[in-house]
C-alpha cells in the first residue's frame, strides 16, 4: 500500500507548486541560455544596448503577443493580427498623407483595429463561428483593405511620427531606448494588472479553463469572449503604430506572417494553447527568445535569415512537447 501511494504523493508535492510556472521558468532558462550562447560567442553581444535593441526591434511584437495572450488564454486564436498591423500602418500613412493631424491618425488606427476585433469577437460569440475561421476572415479583410487603400507603399513624412520614431530615451549606463519600448512595457504592465487583479482578467482564465462552467458560475463569458478579441484588435492596431514608427511607411505587405511570430512567442512563453494557463510576462520573454535567435543569426553573418524560421519551428516543438509533459503529469494526479 505504501509502495503505491508514496510516489503518487511525491509527484503531487513536486508538481503542484511549480507546474503552473514551469513553462515560464523554462522560457526564461531558454532565454538565458540563448543569450548566454550569444554572449560567449560574440564580442559585444552581452551589452546593455544589445538587450535594449531586443526591446527596440521587437516592441511591436511584444504588444502583439500581449493581445494574443488574452485570446489564447480563453482558448481562442487570432490569425488576423499580422494583417491588422499592416492595415494600421496603411491607415496611418494614408491619413497622414491626406493631412490629418498625427493624433487623429493615431485615433483612427486604434479605433479601426478595435472595431475589427469587435466584429470578430461578435462573430465568434454571437454566431458561434470558430475563432480560427472568424479571424481568418478578419485577416483576409484587413489585408484586402490595405490594397483598397493603396497597392503601393506609402511613406510617412509626418514630423510627429518621425520624432517619436527617432527620439530615444537615455537610460543609466548609456543605454538608449525608443518611446516604442516604453509604450510596449506600459501595455505589458496594464495587461498583467487586468489579467490578475480584475474580474475581467480572472474570467479570461475561467473561460479558458472551462467555458461552460464559467457560464454556469454566472460569469460574463460573452463579454469576455468578445472583449479579448477587442483587446487583441486594439493591441494589433497599437503594434501597427509602433511598426509604422519602425518602418516609417505603410504597406499592404508589411508584417506578412507576423501572426505566426506572435503565436510562437506566446506558446514559447509558456501559455497553454488549450487556454486557462499562462502569463503575459511569459509571452514577453517568448518575444525576447525569438529576438535573441534573430540577433544571433544576424551576428553570425554567414547564416541565412531563413534559419530563424527553422529555429523558431524547433523552439515551438520543444515547448509544445513540454506542455504535453505537464499535462500528462497533471492528469496523473
Amino acid at each position: 500500500m505504501t509502495a503505491l501511494t508514496q510516489p503518487r504523493f511525491l509527484s503531487r508535492v513536486q508538481s503542484r507548486v511549480p507546474s503552473r510556472f514551469l513553462p515560464v521558468i523554462a522560457t526564461f532558462v531558454v532565454f538565458v541560455l540563448t543569450f548566454g550562447a550569444g554572449a560567449v560567442r560574440y564580442e559585444g553581444f552581452a551589452s546593455g544596448q544589445v538587450i535594449a535593441n531586443l526591446f527596440i526591434d521587437n516592441a511591436f511584437l511584444i504588444v502583439l503577443a500581449v493581445g494574443m495572450t488574452f485570446v489564447i488564454l480563453t482558448g481562442g486564436i487570432d490569425l488576423s493580427v499580422g494583417a491588422v498591423v499592416a492595415l494600421s500602418t496603411m491607415i496611418a500613412a494614408a491619413t497622414l498623407e491626406a493631412g490629418w493631424p498625427a493624433w487623429l491618425a493615431v485615433l483612427a488606427v486604434l479605433a479601426s483595429g478595435s472595431t475589427l476585433g469587435l466584429g470578430m469577437g461578435l462573430m465568434i460569440h454571437k454566431l458561434r463561428v470558430q475563432p480560427f475561421i472568424a479571424t481568418l476572415a478578419g485577416m483576409f479583410l484587413a489585408r484586402g483593405l490595405c490594397f483598397v487603400i493603396s497597392i503601393d507603399s506609402i511613406s510617412i513624412k509626418d514630423p510627429a511620427f518621425r520624432t517619436i520614431a527617432t527620439e530615444t530615451v537615455m537610460l543609466p549606463g548609456k543605454v538608449a531606448i525608443t518611446y516604442s519600448v516604453l509604450i510596449a512595457l506600459a501595455v505589458v504592465a496594464v495587461a498583467a494588472y487586468v489579467l490578475h487583479l480584475t474580474r475581467f482578467g480572472r474570467t479570461v482564465y475561467a473561460v479558458g479553463g472551462s467555458e461552460s462552467s464559467a457560464r454556469l458560475m454566472g460569469l460574463a463569458t460573452g463579454r469576455v469572449t468578445v472583449g479579448v478579441y477587442v483587446i487583441s484588435g486594439f493591441c494589433s492596431a497599437l503594434a501597427g503604430l509602433l511598426f509604422s514608427f519602425y518602418m516609417l511607411s505603410g504597406y499592404g505587405l508589411h508584417a506578412v506572417g507576423m501572426e505566426l511570430d506572435a503565436i510562437a512567442a506566446v506558446v514559447v512563453g509558456g501559455t497553454l494553447l488549450a487556454g486557462g494557463m499562462g502569463y503575459v510576462g511569459g509571452s514577453v520573454v517568448g518575444v525576447l527568445v525569438l529576438g535573441t535567435v534573430q540577433t544571433i543569426i544576424s551576428f553570425e553573418g554567414t547564416l541565412s535569415s531563413w534559419w530563424t524560421r527553422i529555429v523558431i519551428g524547433v523552439l515551438l516543438l520543444a515547448f509544445i512537447a513540454l506542455q504535453r509533459l505537464i499535462l500528462y503529469r497533471q492528469r496523473d494526479l
Binding site: R199, G209, S210, M217
Partner: peptide, 23 residues
Amino acid sequence: NLCTNLSVAENILLGREPRRFGV
C-alpha cells in the same frame, strides 16, 4: 461545473469577489 485551473477561493467567490480600490 467549476474551473479547475482557478484557485479554490476564486471558484467560490469569483463574480462577487471582494475588491479594494477596484482591484
